[in-house]
């Protein structure tokens, strides 16, 4: 009985004899390259303008802002001159700097 157990144990210890190396599963290289490529992309700094959608959105916003500023400025050009004149007159009257008061 003991010899039986001993023989069994020795058989088991020798069960790796003649073992072949396990082969890589199919398409391993493809999956590995895909993983490396994915990691490379993740490593790159986050730049929203890399994607066309983001680039077009940002550009459109920029153009809209510029257009809006131009329109706003054009609306205010008339009021701007009158406003400046008013403030100048106010300044002049405060310091009695009207044309008639200037004496040489």
């Amino acid at each position: 009985m003991e010899e039986n157990v001993h023989d069994k144990v020795e058989d088991i210890l020798n069960s790796f004899n003649g073992m072949q190396r396990a082969e890589l599963p199919p398409f391993f290289e493809t999956r590995l390259l895909a993983r490396i490529h994915r990691l490379k992309e993740e490593d790159q700094p986050w730049l929203p303008l890399r994607r066309p959608v983001w680039a077009i959105t940002v550009l459109s916003l920029f153009l809209l802002l510029n257009a809006g500023m131009l329109v706003y400025k054009n609306k205010n050009t008339g009021a701007g001159v009158t406003g400046a004149n008013k403030s100048l007159q106010g300044f002049a009257s405060e310091y009695n700097l009207e044309v008639s008061t200037i004496k040489y």
């Binding site: 088991i12 210890l13 069960s15 790796f16 004899n17 003649g18 073992m19 396990a22 082969e23």
Partner: peptide
């Protein structure tokens, strides 16, 4: 179950 183990030794290899 190691695919490189011979069929007749698979059971013993699993124990090992």
């Amino acid at each position: 179950n190691h695919p490189g183990i011979r069929l007749e030794q698979k059971e013993q290899a699993a124990v090992l």
